[in-house]
């Protein structure tokens, strides 16, 4: 079920998620009461501008029990239909998310929009870095932001104060953004052609690693206060990222953080990962970060999608 509005076609299944309108707290009446129940047969109304998939809007659902569609359980064994049989399925569990991600990617590419999926644990400084980045880079490079958090629109308000176009997705109980939620957010945000779209994922070093959003590149932030061993503790995240940005370097004198050790660990799980170090407080390293962003924006939507599932080079 749709994480954003409760419609039936979706990648993930989180009936709680919703997209906040700019200046309005909620997408529609689902939130914030996540345990509500409403009659079935209703219809949802939302914009589907340039949306690449169909929805069955009057699909039944039940928000109280995880949003899974419950067909009537036919426990009656009529003669001839009680035979057990094997059905070959061979279907990737993430296939639906990947379809939405491909649609997002194609659409962003067509508009020349470079999209970044920004991930980290909570409190690594994603929003602070974005606020500083928009202030410094915004005048020469239009930046739009999709903010993901379980609750509140605090981060979107911080970004909006910079003047950048932003939209908040609240995932409710969800621990990550998925491609379908992001597709809805792009509908509403309508980032300008040629701009840079930064998708700030839910603060979490585990779950977001598994969900392609249709981004051109994945960036993981790690603050020096979190410790240099995180790349080995959370290998999936660092394996999935194209760029590691070590943040809060102004705090290095106060914490036991060995940068070389951290980079060594990151390259054990991902030999090709790029690394930058920044401090949004004293400005160290920001120029290199801005250069990286400008290069990503110049590549537009044609930035090579991050490899979620690597393949061995042919013939080897």
């Amino acid at each position: 079920m749709c994480r954003v509005c409760g419609c039936s076609a979706t990648a993930g299944d989180n009936a709680d998620a919703r997209v906040a309108e700019p200046g309005a707290p909620q997408h529609h009446a689902h939130a914030p009461d996540r345990d509500h129940h409403h009659d079935h047969g209703h219809r949802h109304h939302h914009q589907h501008t340039a949306h690449g998939h169909d929805h069955g809007h009057d699909y039944r659902h039940d928000h109280r029990r995880g949003g899974v569609v419950r067909a009537p359980l036919n426990a009656v064994h009529a003669p001839g239909i009680g035979q057990a049989r094997i059905i070959q399925v061979e279907q990737d569990i993430l296939a639906e998310n990947d379809r939405y991600a491909a649609a997002n990617r194609a659409r962003l590419k067509a508009a020349g929009i470079a999209a970044l999926n920004l991930m980290s644990g909570p409190g690594a400084g994603k929003t602070t870095l974005l606020v500083r980045t928009i202030a410094d880079l915004g005048p020469i490079l239009p930046i739009a932001v999709i903010e993901g958090d379980q609750e509140t629109s605090f981060d979107a308000e911080r970004i909006r104060a910079t003047g950048a176009a932003t939209i908040q997705i609240n995932t409710g109980r969800g621990c990550h953004l998925d491609a379908h939620m992001v597709g809805h957010a792009i509908d509403r945000l309508e980032p300008a052609p040629g701009s840079l779209l930064i998708i700030e994922n839910v603060g979490n070093l585990v779950c977001p690693a598994g969900f392609d959003l249709g981004e051109g590149a994945r960036v993981v932030l790690l603050s020096v206060t979190e410790g240099d061993d995180k790349p080995l503790k959370y290998p999936d995240m660092f394996h999935a990222a194209d760029l590691l940005v070590v943040t809060k370097t102004d705090l290095m004198p106060y914490v036991a953080f060995d940068l070389e050790r951290c980079i060594g660990f990151a390259r054990r799980v991902n030999p090709g990962i790029d690394v930058l170090t920044v401090s949004a407080t004293d400005g160290a390293g920001l120029d290199a970060w801005y250069d990286w962003l400008k290069r990503a924006a110049a590549a537009g939507g044609t930035t090579a999608p991050s490899p979620l599932r690597e393949t061995v080079p042919a013939g080897r």
Binding site: A84, R85, I87, V89, E90, Q91, I93, L308, R309
Partner: peptide, 15 residues
Amino acid sequence: VSRGDELRVKDLEVE
């Protein structure tokens, strides 16, 4: 990595 990323529904026993 070339193998070990699989997340698939292989088959079902149903009636």
